[in-house]
């Protein structure tokens, strides 16, 4: 019974990782690749580690697996954001079907400071 649960967890996790790698191969530009891969891979590794914790059923192993899951969930968005920002700064090409780019021209080219460019009346009336 517990074996079926472990096999289910590990199987779903491996399929999520496979989907992440297919997405990395097939998506047309860097930002789409980044936004597909990081999350699916995080979900896959989390499920595989949960399957490992279910298999051993030991306090030390479970806390180790939980620590790895926590760490990966904490660091994956941070690294995705850093890489996406750097890719925008060094002007990686976008897909030709990209419809809007509201970030264009907002970066200071020398100091890389980012301005918010809100008009005063826009600050007064936030969208509800």
């Amino acid at each position: 019974m517990i074996n079926i649960l472990i096999a289910f967890c590990i199987g779903i996790g491996a399929i999520a990782i496979l989907l992440a790698s297919i997405g990395l191969l097939r998506m047309p530009d860097l930002y789409l690749r980044l936004s597909v891969t990081t999350k699916a891979a995080t979900l896959g590794v989390g499920l595989i580690l949960a399957g490992g914790a279910l298999y051993f059923q030991d306090v030390g192993v479970t806390s180790r697996a939980l620590a790895i899951i926590f760490f990966i969930t904490l660091t994956a968005p941070v690294s995705a954001q850093l890489i996406g920002r750097v890719a925008y700064l060094i002007k990686v090409k976008m897909w030709k079907h990209t419809i809007t780019d509201e970030l264009a021209g907002r970066y200071d080219s020398e100091s890389h400071a980012l301005e918010s460019d809100l008009k005063p009346d826009e600050v007064e009336l936030p969208q509800r």
Partner: peptide, 29 residues
């Protein structure tokens, strides 16, 4: 920002220096 980045299809690129605006890359706009 972490929650937005963990939802597939959206990715936070940067937060402006005066912390009023966040720039998001979305897949379905």
């Amino acid at each position: 920002a972490s929650l937005i980045s963990l939802t597939p299809g959206t990715l936070v690129i940067d937060v402006s220096d005066d912390r009023k605006v966040m720039y998001i890359h979305g897949m379905y706009l």
